[in-house]
Design a protein around this nucleic acid. Sequence first.
DNA 1: TAGCTGACGCAAA
DNA 2: ATTTGCGCCAGCT
Length: 107
Amino acid sequence: MSKWRMTLFQQKIYIVTAKILKGQVATYRSIAVLVDRPQASRAVAQALAQNFDPKIPCHRVVRSDGFIGGYNRGGTNQKAKLLRSEGVLVKNNRVESKSILLSQLSY
DNA sequence: TAGCTGACGCAAA
DNA sequence: ATTTGCGCCAGCT
């Protein structure tokens, strides 16, 4: 077992992401705001990309322009599939539904 | 230290 | 509505 070096920034991201409920979707930007780095949306995506803990529903994080974004485990297609299976409307790699509500994501 | 990369954001066209 | 270009930040090399 190697000791995982995680930065504080990453930890915050994971904590917040873990609170996204099934059927909900948050945006990279929203999460960036929640961790007090409103302009680090890109870094947020980067952090999620680095994560490999299956407990963290990173597939529920999408782009603010509606595109679902990437997914390392199975690609965007798999991500879309997962979201649909949770009740989120996805068409052509985009979320149709505007259910981008964040409620209890603070840390 | 400096430069590069990426699961991004946004204004303009 | 879709595409283009430039800006952004944390981590790595």
